[in-house]
Write a protein that binds this DNA or RNA. Sequence first.
DNA 1: TTGTATGCGTTATCAG
DNA 2: CTGATAACGCATACAA
Lengths: 345, 345
Amino acid sequence: MGKHQTTVKDIARKLHISVSTVSRALRNLPDVNPETKKNVHEMAEKLNYEPNYIAKSLINKRTNVIGVIVPLIASSVFSRILTAMHNTAHRHGFQLMVCQSNESSTQESELIKQLVSFKIDGLLISVSSETKNDEAFEILNKKEIPYVLFDRILPINNVSKVTVDEFQCVFTAIKHLNEIGCRRIAHIGGPPHLSISKDRINGYLAALNKYNMEIDDRLILHCNNFDEDPLVNVIKLFSQKPYPDGIFTINDYTAVAAIKYLNKCGVRVPEEVSVIGFNNDPIAEVVEPTLTTIKLPCDEIGTIATDLLIKKINSPSSPPQSVTLHGDIIYRSSSEKAQLTSSFM
Amino acid sequence: MGKHQTTVKDIARKLHISVSTVSRALRNLPDVNPETKKNVHEMAEKLNYEPNYIAKSLINKRTNVIGVIVPLIASSVFSRILTAMHNTAHRHGFQLMVCQSNESSTQESELIKQLVSFKIDGLLISVSSETKNDEAFEILNKKEIPYVLFDRILPINNVSKVTVDEFQCVFTAIKHLNEIGCRRIAHIGGPPHLSISKDRINGYLAALNKYNMEIDDRLILHCNNFDEDPLVNVIKLFSQKPYPDGIFTINDYTAVAAIKYLNKCGVRVPEEVSVIGFNNDPIAEVVEPTLTTIKLPCDEIGTIATDLLIKKINSPSSPPQSVTLHGDIIYRSSSEKAQLTSSFM
DNA sequence: TTGTATGCGTTATCAG
DNA sequence: CTGATAACGCATACAA
């Protein structure tokens, strides 16, 4: 924190006035002589005075700091959401204390405790892939610190949540695959108890059902964490017959691994197998054929979650809200009907 | 900050002892009756006591918070560096207050002021592409708040810096292009006054010189910011003859744009034009042909910068250090000699 | 071993 | 319009 900080006291002493007058002048409150005010501001400037927010916080019982916990910062989705959160928070005068759980529920709960001790005004959190219950959140309730869950949520009542209707996204994707002629659609999913994994597989199953496609357990695989080599599941999928004619994956990395693998094996995408990913990572536009995928409204997620939290911070009695946003399918070459049709002619 | 927080006072009152005893017991200081200590801890547990770091900070003149300013969070390089910084900081008991300047020097200097007011113990910063001087850093010197520049630096004396020897990286890349037969190597660079842009173009020029290749101004282009469509410069490059036979770009996005463009035009990569990018973004492995690029040691950058800062925070008299790390060329297909040679046979 | 008093930098509540 | 004083939650020198 540096050595000697100029304080209101210093200004008061130099000007031979009281600290309360200085404090008022600095904050441009009414009832203070314009000349005094001018002197104070000049002296503050001269002494490089900067208000001490720590001291302010102690009095206001408010730090203007929002804690954020994401599973990992270096992910295209979370880093985009963080960007939006940062800009929204700063627009309202809040700083962000950013933490990552590294996909560990132990670290996550430790981080929550630390942030509570740092007296954050509120918390934005997307849970780790290990997190199974809301135990770690109890302390937030006890201390009445508002929090908003986003993207990866838990079924907690009475808490604001911002999610994407992933069920609908996936349903639409599977429907699209069906329309272009796929009948045996595989799914490579994410860690099983994660909300987003569940929503996605449910959308997948519902669509299969609706469009009279057979549900074949051999076509449904899961990774246990996002660090796993996606190729493993891809290879497993194609180690047994009959092959799928469509694949929907939990993320674009897995989809790209599938496309690359199929290219290498001489299986044509999309003519023989169509592929759809999730997240609209930069790689989706680069892979050949370009990858049809689902784009999450990262900007909206971050902005809305932050806005909801700030609203709750400013009026603690406001009721929790659940906002469900919509993802967009980005249609690209990995699921093109024209080519599929032509291959049958 | 919630409604009523349990404080040491509450514990003291309940136990009919003084706050100082409670304070000591809580921190496990010596000279406190084991039984008293036990009682205090039990009562603390019972009342859900959590220490108030804000109050502690006011006394200790230390917040255990490190500020970080990056141009943007949602970049593969910066988000990876942030990840390393987070884990290193937390290992030492520090929290990270993460900010992005959005590549604006105005926002950057505003953020610095805010972080100073929040009484951060130190700052980690990579400057915006607009930042031309160290004016905004003056306040840090005045307040004696240590800071470390990383990746994108400014020529400030007496300050710790962590950089990559980009000159060397680029020199090696150009040398490699020369070795596989390139003679007219183009460079699409970044914002001109950014340290990394300068270092890279200097490495490019030095290598051209060393290996007796002609320096042709028409082959040297710049983007003014990273949001620009990289294709514009690519097209400009190929709108004039003679074409280059090698391209080195400021980042992988530009390199991929070039490869895609050349593919579309029927120009073979690497047979007719070799391409090398920078950053080793995920897209580099996905594009066809896969992209030779330079990988920055993001993990090291983040870890070392944070370690340096913490060292300085803990012993303010320790001298500033400049650490230069090395990048690695990742050789991939976009610059393969074998193919080039065979095309001449 | 424990308690008292004071201070960290600021704001709020009075009284003047 | 201004000033003295207490308070925020905790730590620490000093006294007991």
